[in-house]
Each structure stands twice: as structure tokens, then as C-alpha cells.
Design a protein around this nucleic acid. Sequence first.
DNA 1: CGTGCCCTTGAGTACAATCAACGTTCGTGG
DNA 2: CCACGAACGTTGATTGTACTCAAGGGCACG
Lengths: 274, 274
Amino acid sequence: MSWCRGLPGDGKSVLEQERLRYRMPFRGGGLLGGNLIDKLLLRLSARDQLSDEEKQALRWAASDTREVPARQTLIRADVELNASILLLEGFMCRYKDLRDGSRQITQLHVPGDFVDLHSFTLKRLDHHVMAITPCRVAAFPHERLEAITAKFPHLTRLLWFATNVDASCHREWALSLGRRTSLERIAHIFCELYFRLRAVGLTDGYSYEFPLTQTELSEAKGITPVHVNRTLRELREQGLVDFRKGRVHLQNLDALIRIADFSPDYLYLEHRSV
Amino acid sequence: MSWCRGLPGDGKSVLEQERLRYRMPFRGGGLLGGNLIDKLLLRLSARDQLSDEEKQALRWAASDTREVPARQTLIRADVELNASILLLEGFMCRYKDLRDGSRQITQLHVPGDFVDLHSFTLKRLDHHVMAITPCRVAAFPHERLEAITAKFPHLTRLLWFATNVDASCHREWALSLGRRTSLERIAHIFCELYFRLRAVGLTDGYSYEFPLTQTELSEAKGITPVHVNRTLRELREQGLVDFRKGRVHLQNLDALIRIADFSPDYLYLEHRSV
DNA sequence: CGTGCCCTTGAGTACAATCAACGTTCGTGG
DNA sequence: CCACGAACGTTGATTGTACTCAAGGGCACG
């Protein structure tokens, strides 16, 4: 890819590069309207075309829908599981914790994300899954996913792809945790969520709902709540981001991307046959 | 699982728990002896039984074998790929880097690991892959893996499982990077490598080859080389680990596990049908 | 016998953690 | 309607872990 970070001969900003690259395939939500799993279909077909049979198979694989109240941990580590959960509405997170009580949020989830598709092969999780806001989720029984692997190899690869993108996010987070300063980390997560939410139509210009407390942000980014607060103030004072009352306003996304050394490559949003 | 970390009513140490749990299925290497991909077969069949057809399919999927000199970066991020690499001999790592030149190693690889099975669905990587020592690798062309997904659903799930365990390691590393002190991080990685190497028969009692420089350790664990040096000295002075000249001697694994808050759960070494 | 890489140690510094106090908002119940 | 408490957010003062800068030693290799 000629537009990847750090390659010579390309002076375009990340934003401009992606304006050129993506023809906004994400905006085509209409044709699936009303379907519960529409955001999942949107995301999967953004990667590669889904046949009608495959879409039907996915709809069939989703058994029941369920409401989860805010702050509830709906999956605990080490518990035997027989279904994977797709997030339909709301925000969830996955976290691990240490003996001493400190916790690390390893991923944030937005509508259209499977929060534990990996439990299909792992059967128990190494982390917990918690609802941040009230959520709606759909369960995909593992026996139905197994049936998909038996009959739909291409769809199987697409689902496998989804878990691999999840792992790619983990790597980017590790880069943040290991190498970025606190300012860069916070800037980075605001960039990431912008791109992820836009892909499912949940941004409004340069603004989006992001109902995390500062404590949760600190648990995701490996810093203390107090320091998150100071960092947010700095970002606000520099006219980069305003994050208040569960809403993010990106005031200067280009500058933010530069500070965070952000590139959307690791989200694999481009279209490509699998 | 009754032996998971933190559950009440189980005072056994991690080591004793796993002594009870595992009947050393890993030691059964004999029947596959001489096969190039024996360590892969060992690991996959430690999880779930492989049929002869599946083993044959895997052998068929491995095209050519290749030597890689130490320090060579054999896969670069953002480059189109058409094969996945299995590590047969030697140590490799995956890393990402920032504009400013700092790098984060996101995973270390030992023989029997696929270093980029995820490239099968991702088609380009978000990270680089480098040989730490001279290595031998086998390439698995994506078209053959695709054929496996079409004909061998169970084997497909087992390979999918392998990428999901890789992601699980990422999460544990994120926990280290975000929440563990430098002493705990270093202790943790020595524990992890002990379990991973033992699973492929590459430990010798409480000792194993671990040919990383202190700089590489620092790049994996998000600390500076100077501080790694001091931390190693402390571990040595406390009689916990001796790491010198590319070899680790665990002098008190129980204490090390306690310090690191280590549990092998996230490595998914137990047998379980997939 | 240099030269370069890795390891080691010391001294000074800085970023973020910790400790502490107070403000704001919101829901609950008197 | 107001008192109260809890959770979240904000700020200041102090501490500490790990970083930076610097210099020297050991060892392998050409």
C-alpha cells in the first residue's frame, strides 16, 4: 500500500489518504434496514461480499436477543460457554484483572462487534465481558457456528477474519500501552473509536457518543484516573478534543492523528476478498 | 475450572494444580518423529485429536521450507501476502513501530508457532516479523489453507483456535504492559516462555534457551534496556531467575509465579474438543 | 587489535502515581 | 422541597518508578 504510514513519497495526511481510498461503502446501511444484525452484515460485507445464503445463515445462527443492564458483567472468565455474543446496541468492554484488584480493559466494543466470537474455539474466556451502558445483544450458539464452518467455508473465513482484526486491535493497544505517552494514548483511542464508529454509522460529523467514565478510560489505557483527567484537560486546552458527558467532539482530527501517530490500517476497513 | 486463579477453596499452587491436571500429553512426540511439522502437530493434538487425514492435509499444505538468518525481517507490514509461515526452529518475534523509532514487540515465537496464520484472512499484516536467531520456517500457501477450510471444518476450527490463543496472549501482554511493574513483567515473561517451551519439549528441567538481548526484552515489555538490566539483577539477587547468555534458569518458579501473578490458563494448553 | 554490540553501573531527571481535598451532578428518601 | 450520599470529575502537593544521559567493561569478530 502506497499510503501506509512512514513510506516515502506520500505527503498526504491520513485523512486525505483515506478520503481518496474509501468510497464510503459504510454508508450503505439502507438496504439491510430493520435487521437486528444489520451492523454486523454492514461490517462483514465492507470487507468482502456476502451472498444471500450467507446472510441468511448468519440470521439463522443468531438465536435470541437479550437486554443487559449497564455495569453488568455478563461473561466471566473461565466459565464454560456454548454461544458467542454479538453486540447490537450499547457499549461493552472486555477486561482482565490482577490479584491486587487493578484491572486492564483489553477492548471496547461498539454495535456490530462480536464480543467473544473467539469463545467459539476457546470454549472459555481468559477475560471478563461487561456492559458499560445498557446493551442489547444477540447470542450465536456454538453448534450453529459449527454448522456454518461445515457448510459455508467463505463465511467461516470472514468470521475468522473478524477475530483476527480483534487481535490486530490488541496489538495496536499493546503498542500504545508499551510505547505511547499518556497524551498519545488518549489521542489514539479517540481516533480509533472515531473510525470504528463511523464504519457502523454511529458518528455525527466529528462527534460521537462515548459513554466511558474517566476511570474506565484509565483502565483501558494503563494510566491513573487522575492523570487521565489532566490529559483530557490538555487535549481540550490545545483545541484537539473535547470529551465531556459521554460525548467526544474532535475539534482537530488531523492534529490528533499526528499526535497519536494513528493510522487506520490495523482496523482492516478496506474491501478485499477473503 | 476449579483450579483457576482466585477461586475460593483451592489452596494449591499453580504448579501443583497443573501437575494434577496435565498428564503430560506433550511428551508423546515419538509417533510423529522426523516430521518437519511435528511440533505443530504436537500442539494442535494437545488441544484436540487430529485424524490421520487432517495430519496429512496439514503436511500437504506445507509447501517449502526455508532458512532465515538471524536479525532478518522476513515479513514487513502492509505487504500483500499469499502464504502463512510456521516456525520450525529458532526464535522469531513480531513488532510494530512508531514514527519516533521506538518499537513494541507484540509477540515472541517458538518452534511450532504459526507466526502469521492470521495473514490468511488479513492478507497484509499490521506488524513486522523478524528472526531473532537463525530460523527454519515452512510456508503454507493461502490457497492450500483455503482448500482446508473447504474440506476440513474441524481442522479449520483448530487452526482458528490457534489464532485465538495468539490473541489471548496479546491480552495477557496488554495486562502486563498496562498494569504490571517492571519486575512483574519480566517475571511473567519468564513464566510464559517456560510453559510454552515445555509444551513443545524445549525445556530442560527448569531451564531453557531464550536467546534474547536485554534490549529485545525491553522492547517486548515496554521498559528501557537500562531498567531491564537492573530488574534482571534484582531477580537474580532474590534467587528467582538467572538469565544470562541466552539461557534462563528458573531457580524458584513458585515464587516467580506468585510475583508475576501468573496463571497458564490464557495459553489454553488443556485438551478439549473444538 | 581495533571496532561494534551488548551488558553494567551511576547520577540526575521527569512523567505519572499517590495522597488528599473539594466541587458537581444526580438519584433517593425524609 | 431539601438533605443526604454516592459516583464522578477536578485540582494541588508530594513521592517514586522508570527514563535519560553518560561512561566504562566484556566479548566476539574481522
